[in-house]
C-alpha cells in the first residue's frame, strides 16, 4: 500500500461497526428487550429524516429515516413519558439520536473531523449529499421501519477503493 500526503484517511465504514454502535444507542435509551431486526424495506420510507455531517480529514453524512409512528414511539421512550410527544419533542429526539450515531461513526476513523449540529425534517429528504452511499442498514423496531445511511465523500471513497483493491 502506498501512502501519499493527499490520500484521504480510510473512508470505509463497515456495516458491522455501524450496527454495533446503533445497537449500543438503542439498548441504552430504548431498552434491550426489543432488539433492532434486519428487514427488507421499500426504497422510500416517508416520514422523518435526521442527518449530521462529518467534515475534516474525511467527509461523511449520516442519515436516519424513520416512519412517523416510530419517531413518536422513540421520542416517548427517550422522554420517559406515555403521552403523545409534541412535534418539537420528536424533532429534538431524532436530532439527538442521529447526533449520537453520527458522533460514534466519526470516531471510527483516526483523522481529525468535526461533527455538524443535526438537521431534522419531516416529509423532506436530507440535504442532497454530494457523497456516495457506503453503508445502509434497513431495520425494524417493534415492527416499524427505520433506515440508517452513511454517505462518504465520493472522491475519498474512490481513492480508498483504489487503495484497498491495489
Amino acid at each position: 500500500m502506498t501512502t501519499t500526503t493527499d490520500t484521504p484517511v480510510d473512508t470505509v465504514v463497515r456495516v458491522e461497526d455501524v450496527r454495533a454502535l446503533l445497537d449500543g444507542v438503542w439498548e441504552s435509551f430504548l431498552g434491550a428487550e426489543e432488539p433492532l431486526l434486519t428487514a427488507a424495506l421499500p426504497a422510500h420510507l416517508g416520514g422523518w429524516t435526521a442527518a449530521v455531517s462529518v467534515t475534516g480529514t474525511w467527509r461523511a453524512q449520516i442519515t436516519i429515516e424513520v416512519v412517523d409512528p416510530l419517531a413518536r414511539l422513540v421520542t416517548a421512550h427517550m422522554l420517559g413519558r406515555d403521552e403523545e410527544p409534541a412535534v418539537e419533542d420528536v424533532r429534538d429526539a431524532l436530532g439527538e439520536l442521529v447526533n449520537m450515531v453520527g458522533g460514534n461513526i466519526k470516531s471510527l476513523h483516526h483523522g481529525t473531523a468535526m461533527l455538524s449540529l443535526p438537521w431534522v425534517g419531516y416529509g423532506e429528504d436530507a440535504p442532497p449529499p454530494l457523497l456516495r452511499e457506503t453503508c445502509r442498514l434497513d431495520l425494524t423496531w417493534r415492527g416499524l421501519p427505520l433506515r440508517v445511511l452513511v454517505h462518504v465523500s465520493a472522491s475519498a471513497a474512490a481513492a480508498d477503493e483504489r487503495r484497498h483493491s491495489g
Binding site: 435509551f29 421520542t75 427517550m78 422522554l79 420517559g80 419533542d89 429534538d92 429526539a93 436530532g95 439527538e96 447526533n99 449540529l117
Partner: peptide
C-alpha cells in the same frame, strides 16, 4: 446540552 431530550434524560438520573 442543546437537546431537550438529552437534558430530560440526564435530569431524571
Amino acid at each position: 446540552d442543546d437537546s431537550t431530550t438529552m437534558r430530560s434524560i440526564l435530569r431524571r438520573i
